[in-house]
Computed example of a mutant assay.
Amino acid sequence: MRVNKWGVGVVLAASVLLAGCSAGSDEPAEKKPSEAATEETQAPASDCPELKEGDTIEGAVLAECVTDALTGTAGFAAKMTTMGIESTTRSTPSEGALETISPIGSVIVIGDERWVKSSSSEWQAPDTASSDPVVAGLSSAASAIDPSDPMGLAGAMAGEYTVTGTGTRLGQEVFLLSGTSDQQGTTVEMVFEVTADYAPLAATGSTELNGQSLDTTTEITEWDVAQEIVAPL
């Protein structure tokens, strides 16, 4: 079964977002709150339903509310673990800027400009016909990135999600929303951790690809903090 691993990574992590899939803990981890993250976020976003344990929310509604929270933030940084490989992602939505760095390959997007880099190459313009399969794959991924949806969530939240519990992230209460998403014929089990106003502070996902179990974890490490992302060339 052929699966777009970039897509699975973004979806499962809710991101390389970048590039595939890895295991996360069952319970949300307690982290030292940042100055921005300690602000109260008790009121749900406009037109978004209040989150309560046991309630179910349509994936399309959840995607809209989460995407609004992402694009409305000054910026964020995240850590992804995919098949034991850690990647970092930073975004400043108001500038349409996204940077993902991993040991396998990296991507920078600023507005309409895109650059890619494999572990053995320099930064370059995307080239889907590159003889380097990593550069070709990253180039395809870069072309699919929508800076207005920096975590790639718009198409990731099909179906229904149920609030199955609560926890704490970055000093804030989060609601655990569990559901199943179908991505290119692959079933992905998802758990999102979002605040009362739908800031997505973590996500875990698992699926099976060619008989291999694939898991991904994404954790927001900075929220509502502008990130300095500069062009590499």
Rank of each mutant, 00 (worst) to 15 (best):
R2Q: 14
N4Y: 10
K5L: 10
W6M: 05
V8A: 15
A13C: 11
A14C: 10
S15Q: 11
L17V: 07
L18A: 01
A19G: 10
G20L: 02
G20Y: 04
C21E: 10
S22C: 08
A23Y: 10
S25H: 09
E30I: 04
E30F: 13
E30N: 05
K32P: 13
K32C: 03
S34E: 05
E40P: 13
E40A: 08
T41N: 10
T41V: 06
A43H: 08
P44E: 00
A45C: 10
S46I: 07
D47P: 09
D47R: 01
P49T: 02
L51G: 14
K52H: 12
K52A: 09
G54F: 01
T56P: 09
T56C: 09
I57N: 05
I57R: 03
A60P: 11
A60V: 01
A63H: 12
C65K: 03
V66H: 08
D68I: 04
D68C: 05
D68S: 14
T71D: 14
T73M: 09
G75S: 12
A78K: 08
M80Y: 15
T81F: 03
T82N: 11
G84Y: 07
E86R: 00
S87C: 05
T88G: 07
T88P: 12
S91K: 10
T92I: 00
P93G: 11
G96Y: 15
A97Q: 14
T100P: 06
T100I: 06
S102N: 14
P103N: 02
I104A: 02
I104E: 13
I104M: 07
S106T: 05
I110N: 15
G111C: 06
R114I: 02
W115Q: 10
S119I: 00
S120A: 13
S121G: 06
S121M: 01
S121Q: 06
Q124A: 04
Q124Y: 14
A125F: 12
A125N: 07
P126S: 01
D127Y: 14
T128C: 02
T128D: 00
T128V: 08
T128I: 12
P133C: 01
V134D: 11
V135W: 13
L138K: 02
A141M: 13
A141K: 06
A141W: 15
D146F: 12
S148A: 03
D149N: 09
A154N: 13
M157P: 07
G159Y: 03
V163S: 06
V163I: 00
G165I: 02
G165H: 08
T166A: 01
L177Q: 05
L177N: 07
S178A: 12
S178C: 04
G179E: 09
S181H: 12
T186P: 09
T186W: 09
T186K: 02
T186R: 00
E189R: 09
E189G: 01
V191G: 03
V194M: 10
A196D: 08
A203P: 07
S206W: 13
T207K: 00
T207I: 04
Q212L: 08
Q212N: 10
D215Q: 07
T218A: 07
E219M: 05
I220V: 03
E222H: 13
W223F: 15
W223S: 03
D224W: 13
V225Y: 08
A226S: 09
A226F: 04
E228D: 15
V230R: 02
A231W: 14
